[in-house]
């Protein structure tokens, strides 16, 4: 059941990202829903399971991006893993910790995507990167509560509570 939900959410998110979210840009910057969901998967299900989901959704996203295949998969897996590790010791997780972790790690994920892309011969790192990261972080703050709820639902958890399993 959990796998089916995760697949559904991954496909839906990538379709949403590449068809609708690219139309709703703020100062030319679009939200990065796949990275945000990967981060929140790490938060909801821990580093290991989050990394697997991150890799899957990233790979699906890769297929529709002009960047080389594997770059988004790498980014999403690392982001999910990092969030899982960083939050595994949280004693009293609240809704806003998920929001803050999700948004900040998504912004960081955008930076990681650019740097990894640079390593693989793409020209993604520029002064504009910081602006893109900032806007992606802000947009993620808006989306994070709903995305967090969605990921807890995927993992069969009470959407109003968070259990660290990392």
């Amino acid at each position: 059941m959990s796998r089916m939900r995760l697949t559904l959410v991954a496909v839906g998110a990538v379709v949403l990202q590449t068809s609708i979210f690219t139309l709703f840009r703020f100062d030319g910057v679009a939200p990065e829903l796949p990275i945000l969901l990967a981060a929140l998967a790490g938060y909801a299900a821990g580093a290991e399971r989050g990394a697997w989901f991150g890799f899957g959704i990233g790979l699906l996203y890769d297929v529709l991006l002009p960047s080389p295949l594997g770059l988004a998969a790498l980014t999403c897996a690392v982001v999910a893993w990092l969030v899982g590790v960083l939050t595994s010791g949280l004693m009293h997780p609240t809704w806003w910790t998920a929001t803050v972790f999700g948004a900040s790690m998504t912004a960081l994920g955008v930076g990681l995507f650019a740097v990894a892309g640079e390593v693989f011969g793409q020209r993604y790192v520029s002064l504009d990167l910081l602006r893109i990261m900032a806007f992606v972080g802000l947009l993620s703050l808006i989306l994070a509560p709903a995305a967090s709820w969605l990921m807890r639902w995927c993992y069969g958890q009470d959407p109003n509570a968070r259990t660290a399993s990392g």
């Binding site: 821990g46 580093a47 290991e48 990394a51 697997w52 890799f55 990233g58 790979l59 890769d62 080389p68 295949l69 594997g70 770059l71 998969a73 790498l74 897996a77 690392v78 893993w81 899982g84 590790v85 693989f120 011969g121 990392g166």
Partner: peptide, 25 residues
Amino acid sequence: RPGGRRRTTLVLLVLTAITLLTLDL
């Protein structure tokens, strides 16, 4: 140790991604 398994998973996924990147390029 759980931490060791987590790291193994990450290493596995990162290596897979790098392989895909290399093949794609």
